[in-house]
């Protein structure tokens, strides 16, 4: 190594050191520790006295798989991801196409308005939506009653609580992906559309054969980010339903929070967190794989 190279290497590590140290100690180390923790019976007694800690192998995972509450949380989380995710992406794409349409003037105005829900504080808007969803005083049921729909107990009815949660999440999030889609749309060369029009392709054919394929990479990014985010749903049920009614909105992260930070079953909660991690990882791989097959 020359003196200059040594100088470069030293400087680089000096600049990296604070970030790597912080990320290492306060992220990677805890992630590893969580894996270890998930093989122990760390509970409220161990919190007071570490000698109480026992290594129990895969017992936490076994217990999770036997717990009907865990399966409920898993099912609810999948419901939220599988219904909420695609719905959210579809609404984002629709909004992006509308705002980006050539005929529209003041696209910036619409873009800003659609984006406003994204920057709001989730807890605050969850409080607001609780009120919107109120069976008697809420604006939503009032609006529906004008259309002749009977009042729905959105957050109290076990069958409606999760759809209500998804509706709010879509409202809150669609603006973010819309911006990414707009960027993707603007990267598509306009000549392609002109050529297609000359060939007599209608709007749908253009969308199907130009817009969608060329949005591919953007689509993958948006779908991945949305899926990862939706798997981690927590504040919505925490504020709006506390996981009810009848545990129908209990998510994995809410279960982890309750087990870990309310009952201090930290070993068990770590196992739940790791299951979530594995699911997110599997979901990510699956999407990457599907995508690769499609583009071959």
């Amino acid at each position: 190594m020359t003196g200059f190279e040594r100088h470069v290497t030293f400087s680089a590590w000096a600049f990296l050191a604070p970030a790597l140290l912080l990320i290492g100690v306060f992220f990677f180390l805890p992630v590893l520790a969580a894996l270890l923790l998930s093989f122990t019976d760390f509970d409220i007694y161990a919190l007071g006295d570490l000698d109480r800690l026992r290594f129990i192998g895969l017992d936490n995972y076994r217990q999770l798989l036997q717990s009907s509450l865990f399966w409920t949380a898993l099912g609810n989380t999948f419901y939220f991801v599988i219904v909420g995710g695609p719905l959210s992406v579809a609404v984002s794409l629709g909004a992006a196409l509308l705002v980006n349409a050539r005929l529209i003037r003041f696209p910036g105005l619409f873009r800003t308005a659609f984006f406003l829900p994204v920057v709001t504080t989730l807890v605050a808007v969850a409080v607001v939506w609780r009120y919107l969803y109120h069976p008697r005083y809420g604006l939503l049921n009032y609006g529906l009653s004008l259309l002749g729909v009977e009042p729905i107990d959105w957050l109290g009815d076990p069958d409606w609580a999760m759809p209500a949660m998804i509706l709010m999440a879509v409202w809150k999030n669609f603006g973010f992906n819309m911006i990414i889609f707009i960027a993707g749309l603007q990267n598509i060369p306009t000549q392609l559309y002109e050529a297609a029009r000359i060939d007599g392709a209608d709007a749908w054919a253009q969308f199907r054969h130009i817009t969608l394929p060329l949005l591919g990479p953007t689509f993958l990014f948006v779908a991945l980010m949305t899926m990862i985010g939706y798997f981690q749903v927590f504040a919505e049920p925490y504020v709006m339903t506390q996981g009810g009614p009848a545990n129908r909105t209990l998510s994995i992260v809410l279960l982890m929070y309750e087990e870990g930070f309310r009952w201090w079953n930290m070993g068990y909660a770590s196992a739940a967190a790791f299951v979530l991690f594995v699911l997110i990882l599997a979901g990510t791989m699956l999407q990457l794989k599907l995508r690769r097959r499609e583009s071959l």
């Binding site: 990677f28 805890p30 520790a33 969580a34 927590f234 909660a269 991690f277 990882l281």
Partner: peptide, 16 residues
């Protein structure tokens, strides 16, 4: 590491 959800680190981080 961006695919690791932050919640995984939260329990040990709390103890730390």
């Amino acid at each position: 590491a961006l695919v690791i959800p932050a919640q995984v680190a939260m329990l040990p981080l709390f103890l730390l």
